[in-house]
């Protein structure tokens, strides 16, 4: 377990040396100063080493490989592999793949519906739980937050049992009313996934909003009370504007999360033939890499997913900033 820190210490010490050298002669307390200068790098060393290994290098490798074309000569590639600069051809290939582009569009549709539904639900639950009318707030808070601790895979397994005809109590109950819902059909399965995601993350987002609600100073409420504002008025005119940072934060996290959607559709695929191997962008990249063994195009897809996530997050930030100013 101690391998990473010890392995990385030399790197940190080496990094600190250039900073130390110019100072040692200048001051009388040279030894003390050098220790203070070396310390931040020593403390940062384990993090930086791991960060470089698991973030910087893979991102650079992905960028590099997205601009590379690998050609195997010979029937099975036995005559050697050559790789050369490919420009944007991998990106062109990724974007020419109708299924990949369609999966992006599908996620946008998903996000436009699911993210607002979830954030509004989380906000309402947070406001209700923080209102004086709520009973047993601690119990409800825990109940809503519990699904966050259930891994996406297990949440999907759970809900898939709720969706599969024969097992599902929901379909049984709907049957009493003469209904026969199909949760796994081509037109409904996207919303069945949306339900799983909403179930998993509403409580988590609610807690972030509650944390911000609790930070509102009591004087603000006192002032509103003096003015005779109704609780609804307080919620709309005071609480909502003041929890805006939390709402922006949770929305951005949700947008990034939506584009990364993978576990839910991948697991639900076992019970729903309507989900293909390119249903979401990430599923598409995974399939390209491991089913088609085309790592270069997969890398281009991964970069495109990250870029779209960035673009949407910044667009949303710009939108909220413009609105408030």
């Amino acid at each position: 377990m101690t391998t990473p820190p010890t392995r990385t210490d030399p790197a940190g010490a080496a990094a600190a040396r250039p900073g130390r050298t110019p100072n040692t002669g200048q001051r009388g307390s040279g030894r003390r100063t050098s220790a203070v200068e070396r310390a931040p790098w020593l403390l940062l060393a384990p993090f930086l080493a791991l960060f470089i290994l698991t973030f910087i290098l893979p991102i650079l490798a992905a960028l590099l490989s997205s601009f590379t074309k690998v050609t195997r000569s010979g029937l099975f590639g036995e005559a050697g592999i050559t790789s050369k600069f490919a420009g944007f051809s991998n990106y062109a290939q990724a974007l020419a793949d109708g299924n990949f582009v369609a999966s992006m569009g599908r996620m946008l549709l998903f996000g436009v519906v699911q993210v607002p539904v979830m954030i509004i639900m989380a906000t309402i639950l947070a406001l209700l739980l923080e209102s004086a009318s709520a009973r047993w707030p601690a119990f409800f808070r825990a109940a809503y937050f519990l699904p966050y601790g259930v891994p996406g895979v297990i949440a999907t397994i759970l809900w898939s049992f709720m969706y599969v005809p024969g097992l599902s109590p929901l379909i049984d109950i709907a049957g009493w009313f003469g209904l026969s819902p199909d949760f796994l059909g081509p037109s409904t399965v996207l919303w069945s996934i949306a339900n799983i995601v909403t179930w998993s993350y509403t409580g988590y987002n609610m807690l972030i909003i509650i944390a911000q609600l609790k930070a509102i100073p009591a004087e603000v409420y006192e002032a509103a009370k003096m003015d005779g504002a109704s609780p609804v008025k307080v919620a709309l005119a005071i609480q909502l504007p003041l929890i805006k940072p939390a709402l922006v934060l949770t929305t951005i996290f949700s947008i990034i999360g939506t584009l990364q959607l993978f576990a839910e559709p991948q697991v639900l695929k076992t019970v729903s033939p309507a989900i293909d191997s390119q249903y979401t962008p990430n599923l598409s990249a995974y399939t390209t890499a491991f089913a088609y063994n085309d790592y270069n195009v997969a890398a281009a897809q991964a970069v495109l997913i990250a870029l779209v996530a960035f673009a949407l997050s910044f667009a949303f930030l710009a939108f909220t900033n413009r609105k408030s100013s």
Partner: peptide, 20 residues
């Protein structure tokens, strides 16, 4: 640079990390 890392989707690094 580290702050940028907060924003990079986790799944974007998983594939290249596997190759590495």
């Amino acid at each position: 640079i580290i702050l940028g890392g907060v924003l990079v989707p986790g799944t974007a690094t998983a594939l290249p990390l596997f190759l590495l």
